[in-house]
């Protein structure tokens, strides 16, 4: 029973990380129908930034994390304008290639900047303890990750469901041509969404560094995981990403604990099964 709870907590925490990193990707992909393989790079840049500010310059964790997320957002805005805008109009294959190219440049930059070793992220001491819940104690870090994931999901729900920006975003995802004919500045909506997604990815990358260790090759190593969450959840669906990330996170963690010999095979088998039955993903709309 105790092990089961531990597995569940780890799995949910892992799912939350996947959700935070993938959700921006899902929304931007749903919005612009662009296949973006470089999104994991923003998660890595967030982690690399905290490593630099925290471990090398000695900043405390929270300001370091905030600065790093801010820096990633500040980088994402001009990147979207200069690099991504032409990519939206390209064919699927060109999008794949261009974003692989961007991924390579991100890897090479971090490699040049910080080297190819593991980038340790100094977490506050308070995070490494355990929390006594009365009947059990759970690792603090996992609880913080789960809390942050839930807060992100709630915040996104409020943003999408309750604000003017959210209404415009939903309209643009549903039908971009009609939305822009109605006077919605879809280009701006996309720039904001892209920056928000990059910031969330950085946040997820920083918080998740214990589960997905950060180094220069991070975007290539976990690219497939993030994209699979998007594909399984359904492009453009935030709820879909949440369910897919949580389900795949719990599945992968359980499989690693219970049948360690089979590693990630279940993750991919379930992916194949879901996508074979529902090619548009769990909550995606049929093309």
């Amino acid at each position: 029973m105790g092990t089961l709870l531990n597995i569940l907590v780890d799995g949910v925490a892992y799912g939350m990380i996947l959700f935070m990193i993938s959700v921006g990707l899902s929304v931007t992909m749903g919005l612009m129908r662009v296949i973006n393989l470089a999104h994991g790079g923003f998660a890595m840049l967030g982690g690399a930034g905290v490593h630099y500010l925290g471990a090398r310059l000695g900043l405390p964790f929270v300001p370091a994390a905030l600065l790093a997320i801010g820096a990633v957002v500040a980088l994402a805005v001009p990147m979207e304008r200069v690099l991504y805008r032409p990519i939206y109009r390209m064919g699927e294959l060109q999008q794949v290639l261009a974003t692989i190219g961007i991924t390579f440049l991100m890897i090479a930059s971090v490699n040049l900047w910080l080297g190819s070793t593991l980038l340790a992220i100094p977490l506050p001491d308070a995070w490494s303890g355990t929390v006594d819940l009365g009947f059990r104690s759970l690792p603090m870090h996992r609880l913080i990750v789960i809390g942050a994931g839930l807060a992100t999901a709630l915040g996104l729900w409020a943003l999408i469901d309750r604000t003017g920006y959210g209404i415009r975003l939903r309209a643009a995802v549903d039908n971009r041509a009609t939305a822009s004919a109605l006077g919605i500045d879809t280009g701006r909506i996309f720039a904001i969404t892209f920056a928000l997604g990059a910031g969330l990815a950085a946040f997820g990358g920083i918080l998740g560094a214990e589960l997905l260790p950060v180094d220069a090759y991070y975007p290539l190593r976990y690219m497939v995981h993030f994209l699979i969450v998007v594909a399984v959840g359904g492009m453009g669906s935030i709820t879909g990403s949440f369910l897919a990330a949580l389900g795949l996170g719990i599945l992968d963690t359980t499989a690693r604990y219970m049948v360690p010999d089979f590693g990630t095979i279940f993750f991919f088998l379930v992916t194949i099964l879901v996508l074979a039955l529902r090619p548009q993903g769990l909550l995606g709309r049929a093309a």
Partner: peptide, 20 residues
């Protein structure tokens, strides 16, 4: 039977399963 992102992910998943 699949297209676009789904096809890309499925093709990657097949290779990963075989690797495992």
């Amino acid at each position: 039977r699949a297209h676009g992102l789904t096809l890309l992910m499925l093709s990657i998943a097949v290779a990963q399963v075989l690797q495992e």
